[in-house]
Every structure is written in structure tokens, then in C-alpha cells.
Design a binder for these strands. Sequence first.
DNA 1: CACGACAGCTAAATCGTTTTAGTAATTTTC
DNA 2: GAAAATTACTAAAACGATTTAGCTGTCGTG
Lengths: 346, 346
Amino acid sequence: MKKHRLSIDDIAQSLGVSKTLVSLVINGKAENYGIATETRQRVMAKANELGYQANHIARSLRLGKSFTIGLIVSDIANPFYAQAARLLEDHAYINDYTLITCSTDEDIEKEKKILQNFIEKQVDGIIISSSQVQQSILEKHYHKGLPIVLIDRTVKGSDLPSVSVDNAQGAYLATKHLVFQGFHRPMALAITPSHISTIKSRVDGYTKALAEKNLQPRIYEISYNNSFSEVETLLKNLYRQNSFPDSIFTLNNNLATAVLHTLNLLHLEIPRQVGLISFDDVSFFSFMNPGISAISQPIEKICQTAFRLLINQIEKSTDKKNINQVVLPVNLRIRQSTQKNTHTNH
Amino acid sequence: MKKHRLSIDDIAQSLGVSKTLVSLVINGKAENYGIATETRQRVMAKANELGYQANHIARSLRLGKSFTIGLIVSDIANPFYAQAARLLEDHAYINDYTLITCSTDEDIEKEKKILQNFIEKQVDGIIISSSQVQQSILEKHYHKGLPIVLIDRTVKGSDLPSVSVDNAQGAYLATKHLVFQGFHRPMALAITPSHISTIKSRVDGYTKALAEKNLQPRIYEISYNNSFSEVETLLKNLYRQNSFPDSIFTLNNNLATAVLHTLNLLHLEIPRQVGLISFDDVSFFSFMNPGISAISQPIEKICQTAFRLLINQIEKSTDKKNINQVVLPVNLRIRQSTQKNTHTNH
DNA sequence: CACGACAGCTAAATCGTTTTAGTAATTTTC
DNA sequence: GAAAATTACTAAAACGATTTAGCTGTCGTG
């Protein structure tokens, strides 16, 4: 039984030439090395005849480069990250990289393990939406030379390259919009672990907007792992206790879906009985009825920028001191869910 | 400048032992080879001290195994595939594999390139929802020894292992349900390329259910690349021409979102003015208002089975003649979008 | 005290590439 | 017609691990 995968050597031997020659031809370097055209054709013909397929593992080992990029997010099934993955995948594809993806479920230990694993797999760089409080591990790797770009979540005072949006501003806009529409008791639903930088900033923006109107903030924290049931329990309790808010600002799209689920159960009508706005504009917000107002992030731009920052690091390991902390603006998308006096189009 | 990444040799040299020894210790084979406990500890201590991280590329080359699995789907951002990716990722993770993912956009040439690329990257196996008409390329690789599992889409008469659902039955159930609810002119929205096996079967199921009631099928084909605008154009035209159907059966979740989008534009109320049911039960169908009826696929089961079939192939290259074509049942999830005489809960 | 057994370790081959530093044969140049 | 340049190609090292086969030296046994 031949376990032997077809290699460059086989082609070389069957033609009676050196494997150097075969390698040069296959890599298109024949011209530079003055290989005779006829020889080149013979090699290519043989390679096709035998069905040769290069072994990238061997190539990577020799080159010290894997042409692989690691993407680490909390959950690739979350529509926001799924879309990001898709966009990054496209950038990777046209640049001859492939993307490997892992989800952390906000578990710091798992994140560390994945990071470790990616490094051992010799990824050329990492794009990460990190759950870590202290970025020391990431920074350590970065300063050792591992190309890294943070997306979505960032850290002040760190020199790690990052691409994020103005979360505080987004939350501020959303909250102001609610108040302006006549919702004077908007509640915010945040997620724990609360150290996640984006959530912190969004809470700040929310609080600031309310403070300007002398309104009291009202924030509940939902734990990541079972947000669905926690939201349900919370809202049901508030409803029973007659302390239901007039509107809800969910700090990410997952919470919005959990809220929608519970509002359906409680037969509460949006926006008549309760207003709703969410951070992250996922696609179905727009074709629901009523449409859900949201703060949208420029995700194409985020991914494009992140990819560029990463490739810059990978390709010229010098000049790391470029503009490498990018903050992009968000957009307020107003739909029916925050229009107190309008109706759904039934 | 030290380009040299820390290797097993460095540990060996700094301790004055052979790299064989270091390798054995690090791989936990010390006992089997009778390495002294004290030596073992010295090696481990040194490895930690120097911050040694194994190079999986070198390991893969030597072992002829990459511990990587390739996933190929049409679009990883599609919620159905995003969830599949997540589930497969979890299976991979606990089995010490990593997943690399690529989207084909139903482009056969791209699919071929990705396949080629995955093979060159020496994936240990491939899970694919293939767009290809003739499976000859996949079969060729399979018979050459590449572990492959088809998911979602399969091919009759091929011996490729596969995991799919009973698409015809699902479509049959959905259509019968519509008719039973009093929708007598249900239209089906299919997607091209029409050779996609799942779509074919679903069309069959739809047609069969209608035939049993002596009703005429009415099928429109939407092209994958710009389903959104094509659906919009189609429905608007039908509306203008007064030939709007009383209900719509969308053959995948993408089409359902496109339909929802257009129905909003046309101010048509579901289910009063038009009924809607879709293949693929994506999460937001359940918390929309009205909820969207759907045929749900047992996605956890699909992924679990597919992963098992793949691992079986990877780990014992023998006995390929197992049960390796699995067809799972679907579920009809009835929600308000097909309840003609009920109302949304406003 | 010679022999085998065993404990503890190592040299070297190997995986499939890329690349450096050549070599040999021919051609050009003066 | 000898030195220099060019053409066409190659041997061997390297990447960083794993594994096979084997090498010492000590000990127990008959």
C-alpha cells in the first residue's frame, strides 16, 4: 500500500531532473532561473499528468508562514459576528489567506486555550474580539511579534492595534432618541461579564444622555450564558410588579431578540406599550414589523480596516508605529419600534 | 536579530540532552520510554521557563495529519450555516481539531478552488454543502482517500457519505399545511442554480401535495446572487397585476427574509392577506410577530452525525462500507403566519 | 564472571518543500 | 584562444517536529 502522497520528488525522478528544478517551475520562478522553456513544459505536463497537488504544510514549515489568519469571537453564530466572519473571509480569500475561526462563549480560559492553539498552529496573525479583562497576554504576544488586531472590543491605554466604533456615542444617540420620542423611563439591558469594553462604553453613553435630562438610569445586567431565560424572568417580574419601563435599550442584538421573545409572551405591543431600540443592527430588524430601531455599526468598514491593519503587520514587520487604533462612527437607524405615536402598518 | 522561533532543539541544548528526549517528555511519552522522573521534570521546567510553544506545522508534516477540518458552504453568514458552523466548531474543538471555513456563493468555480486549496492545506477531512451538479470531483477525491461528508445537499446514486433531511417530505408537509389552513393558491419560491438537490426535492414535495388536491403548482425561480431585489420585483409585479398568491412557501430562509421585506413595502399583512411558510427555521421566525411557520431541520443532529461520519473516516481508513448516508426527519413548526383566521397578538 | 535484561538515553532518518551556493557546458568578448 | 559571462541545471541544507533503531552502562542471575 502506497501511503506516499505524490511529491515534487516523484515528478523530478520520473523526469530525471532535480527537485529544485521542479520546485522552481511549479512556483513560476523558471524564468528568473533561466530554465529552458521546453523543460518547463515537460515539468508542467508531468505535474498535471500525475495530478500533483502541493503540500502547503511543508511549504509553510520551510517559509515560516502559514497563510492562515485566526479569528476569535464570542460566538460565530451571532449574526453580527457571522457577518464579520464572512467579510473577513472574503478579504482573506482574495489575499490568499484562509481563516480559522473559534468561539469563546466569553470564557476567558477558553479564549486563552484558543489563542495558544492558534499560535501553535502558526497563524500569521489574529483578529480578535476579546473577552479578556487585562490584555496582558495579548500584549505579550503582540510585543513578541505576533500580528494582532482587536475588533469590536478594545482597551484604553493599550497599544494593541484595534478597530472599533464609538460605543458611547452610539448609546448616547439611542438614548437621546428614546427620550426625544417621549420615552422618559428607558431601561438599559446590559450583559455580563461587565468588563467587556463595549458594554461599559454603552452604559456610559446611556447614563450621560439621561443625566442631561435629569432622568434616572436603570440598568439590569444579564449574564451571557443564558440571556434568554434571564431576560424572560426579569421582564416578567417587572411586569408583575407594575414597574415595567416605557422603553428598553438593549446593549447588543442578542438581548434584543430575548426581549422580543418575552414581549411576545407578555402580549406587549411595540411601540405602543413599550419602545425598543438596540445596539447592533442585524438584518432582520429591518424587515420585522414593526421594524426595530438600532444603532448600526459600519461592519464592512470595520472588517476591511481590521484586515488591512493585520496585513500591514504581517507583511512589514517594521514600522509598527502607524495609525493603528481606529474608531469609526455609528449610525442611528430609526424604525417603528421607537415611534410611540405611529402604528405598525397593519 | 534572532528570527529563530524557540524549538525543541533549544531546550535540548540548554539542558545538554537530545531532542528526542525533549520530544518524548513533551508528548507525555516519557513513561513508555523509561525516562527518569527527574529528567522529565527538568525538561518540563525548562520548557516553561523558556516559554516553549510547539510548532504544529512541523508536527503535521511529520505526522501527515493537520488536525484541521474544512467546511465549505454557500454563505457562512446565512443563519442556518452560521449555526452549523458553530456546532461543528464545537465538535471539532472537543476533538482537538480546528475548523477552516469558506463560502462559495454557489459559484462552482470558486467551490473547486476552495476544495483544491483545502486539499493543499492538507485538511484531514471536508464537510461540504456542495453546489456542484456532478459530484465527480468530490467522488474522485473521496475514492483517493480524502474523508468527505456532504451535509444538507446530497446526490442520489453517489456513495459519498452524507447527512441530509427529508426535503420532499418537509415541503409536502408545509404545502399540505397551507392547503389545510385554507390557502388554495400557494406559490413556491425556489432558488437557482436549480440543480441544488435540496431545492429539487422541495419542489417535488410541494408539487406532490398540490397534486393530491388537484391544485396547480406555481413556482418562481429566484437567482441566488440577488434574491432580495428579484423577490421584490417579482412580488411587486404580481401585486400590480392582481395575480398575487394567497400564500407563499419559500424554499429557504433567505427567500423568506426577502419576502418579508417586500410584504412590508407593499403593506400586506401576514397572515390575513397572505400566508407564509418557509423551509429552514431560523431563530427570528419564532419571535417575530406574527411568528413565521417553518419546516425546521434538526441541525444539532445533522452536525453531530456529520462530524461522526467524518471522524470515522479519518480515524479508521478501513471499513468505508458503514451506514454513511443518513436522512433525518424534519419538523413542521406552526406559527401565526399560516393561521388565516387568527390574529397577531396586538 | 559472563550473559542477558533493563533502564536511560541518543543519532539519524523522515515528512515535502524552498533556497543558497554552486557546477558544467557553452558562448561571448577582446 | 584564454578569460569572462551566460545558460541550464543540481546538491544539500534548512524548517521543527516524531520515530526507529540502537547504544551505553548497570544489575541480577546461573
